[in-house]
Design a protein around this nucleic acid. Structure first.
Lengths: 154, 154
DNA sequence: GCCATTTAGTTGAACGCTCAACAAAATCGC
DNA sequence: GCGATTTTGTTGAGCGTTCAACTAAATGGC
């Protein structure tokens, strides 16, 4: 039997953790709601369209798209099904791997994205960048990258 | 007709925004999965139990609990229903406002929380605090509080 | 006091996500 | 080459969240 004493968060850590929790949740919910209201799509779907629009030929293998959009395979599969029936994405067989599928952004999908993007960027600016000083923006980038690096190797 | 040119994100802002997005999403998903695996409850429910455990008499009005846990009324109502049928929370009539309901943490709920807390705190430490320097933790607190302040007044 | 408005909380439907199970094709080991 | 393993992607069930609609009680105006 091994007993390990829990190292609880001290008041400062507590405050930091809760502030981070509140801020990131509120930010995501706000941006998600704005996108839903103005463009009729959830943020996760918006991001899929963005990644496809940036890919060469506006197309990506499902697994690469999952990786790029930070999504599980299952989630992506469901999401692309929905985007496909909205007419914004088409699925095609991958020529080099017969297991594979390629998701391609349609013109309609690109148009939807183009219509949604300005409002969304505006929202990101207003809710994330405007309240922070340039130094804080820089700090936030370093902090986020440190967290990502750490989470990836776990 | 007023045409406003979109101020797109410059490469640095782009990088910051995406890193933040990736980091906060990955962190939340990781902590949520760990809590689900080790304690069988989602993070949102864990937080409700925490807030109740900290309240005087381990009880709170539904609307105060919603406020404290950063939840919509509807979400809280559904959540408390589930927590109630798990035996972790009880609903009682509010003595001073006949519209009101008070959620009270049961002993079973407190025990569940006590069992889940050490592992969760450990996770927060490992995934959030360990990868950051003390200075970065301080920066993150300031940044988060600035964002929260800004989002609250919108 | 009485009607209009606001506040508290709940409900059900629609939707998106998670998880585990699965099929099919590619790759690895020998 | 051939069987075991890994990788790719999908599926369906269960769960949690959102949104709009709703009831009931408190508050405010006159």
């Amino acid at each position: 039997m091994i007993a390990v004493m829990t190292r609880w968060l001290d008041p400062d850590e507590q405050r930091t953790w809760r502030a981070f929790l509140t801020a990131s949740r509120a930010l995501m919910e706000t941006l998600d709601r704005e996108l839903q209201r103005d463009a009729g799509i959830p943020h996760a779907y918006y991001e899929i369209l963005v990644r496809l629009s940036e890919a060469p030929g506006r197309q990506l293998r499902m697994s690469d798209l999952a990786e790029a959009s930070g999504s599980s395979r299952s989630r992506l599969s469901h999401a692309v099904s929905r985007l496909e029936s909205a007419g914004w994405v088409r699925r095609e067989d991958c020529p080099t791997d017969r297991r594979g599928q390629v998701a391609r952004l349609t013109d309609a999908g690109h148009a939807t994205l183009a219509a949604a993007a300005p409002g969304h960027v505006e929202g990101v600016r207003r809710h994330l960048f405007d309240p922070l000083s340039p130094a804080q923006v820089d700090q936030l980038r370093r902090i986020s990258e440190a967290l990502v690096d750490h989470l990836r190797e776990t």
